[in-house]
Design a protein around this nucleic acid. Structure first.
Length: 328
DNA sequence: ACGGTCGATCGCGTTCATAT
DNA sequence: ATATGAACGCGATCGACCGT
């Protein structure tokens, strides 16, 4: 959805008015996604499933929003960042955030954030009535409601992350029937969150909740800086551990505690992030991009890319170029 | 020439015991 | 509490091959 269309619907108009106004201006199928002009400025009136907040450079501003009263807000970080995040003035997270990390803001809960690094966040709006309906369907009509979704801290889940990436693709309207598509993905996300909650009750360890950092921040900072600087070169666990000043075994364990994912997995995500931006240059060969992102063969690059993105590098590039996202 | 797939090899991540 | 090191299973990696 382009900025001109977005500007026609102020974020502050009442829900019902906004819905009908937007329907009158644009075809109904273009309503499910918004780009945020300020952090979480979207009023998720009927039809808006998700919105996205991108900040290319860090700024010193703290953003504060009262939570959406009619539902939950799921924030999925599409890129790595560094932030201080609070719910009702209580610190939820302070420090580095890996791509794929997520957190849920409960209905009406006040959220405050200060980003210390560029960020790219997808906000998915989960209406309370939808959550209620799914709970009643799965646990019976007399199941206790309402519930707190997603716990109180940062968490990771591969399935939700993949669903969120699919939802991000709806942004430009490239997916046919994309409003139904977006609603179906949202429903799947809610179901998955509820399933995770059930799992957490039976076996707490199965839930991938990100815990507070136990690797000291200065060590983590040095390791992440090393990744950023040497991304195009071979980086081993030993290199990262050495940059942080600990042994590789200790580093692997502590890094996982701090970031919620293994060092190698983090490295691959960073490489694929960079590869995606390079792929938008249609003239650049796949092998060239693979080498520029630290892969030593196109075979390895293709395999990792397909595993993480769900498409081959050329397939993904073709999709993006079709949508006019090429850069020169 | 470029890009995708497959199989063998190797290194990573995890666990556990131990030291400081 | 924090850090190190050994052992081991398995997934990541890379070279070879094939298709376009």
């Amino acid at each position: 959805m382009d900025a001109a269309v977005l500007s026609l619907v102020p974020a502050t108009v009442p829900a019902r008015v906004a819905s009908s106004a937007q329907d009158a201006i644009t075809p109904p199928l273009r309503n499910s996604f918004r780009l945020e002009r300020s952090w979480r400025d979207t009023v998720p009136f009927d039809g808006v499933v998700a919105s996205r907040w991108r900040m290319p450079a860090p700024c010193d501003t703290a953003f504060e929003r009262a939570g959406w009263g009619e539902g939950y807000t799921l924030a999925v970080h599409l890129s790595s960042t560094r932030m201080l995040f609070q719910h009702e003035r209580e610190i939820v997270w302070s420090g580095f955030v890996a791509p794929g990390t997520m957190l849920v803001t409960q209905p009406g809960e006040r959220a405050t954030v200060r980003f210390h690094a560029p960020c790219d966040v997808l906000h998915v709006f989960l209406p309370m009535r939808q959550v209620r309906r799914l709970i009643s369907g799965a646990r019976g009509a007399d199941a206790p409601q309402p519930i707190a979704l997603g716990g109180s801290g940062l968490m990771r889940d591969a399935a939700i992350e993949r669903l969120a990436l699919l939802l991000a693709d709806v942004q430009d309207g490239a997916v046919a029937f994309h409003r139904d598509y977006a609603c179906a993905i949202r429903e799947a996300i809610v179901a998955r969150l509820l399933a995770l909650q059930d799992d957490a009750g039976e076996a707490r360890d199965t839930r991938a909740e990100v815990r507070r950092a136990s690797l000291p921040d200065w060590r983590l900072r040095r390791a992440l800086a090393y990744v950023d600087t040497h991304l195009a070169e071979p980086i081993g666990l030993r290199d990262l551990a050495a940059s942080a000043g600990v042994t590789r075994m200790h580093f692997a364990a502590q890094f996982r505690l701090a970031m919620g994912l293994a060092p190698h997995e983090y490295l691959m995500r960073c490489r694929i992030e960079r590869a995606k931006s390079l792929l938008l240059n249609a003239d650049r060969a796949i092998l060239d991009i693979a080498l520029a992102c630290g892969f030593r063969t196109h075979a390895h690059f293709g395999a990792v890319f397909k595993r993480m993105v769900g498409a081959s590098p050329t397939g993904w590039r073709a999709q993006r170029l079709e949508r006019g996202e090429a850069i020169s």
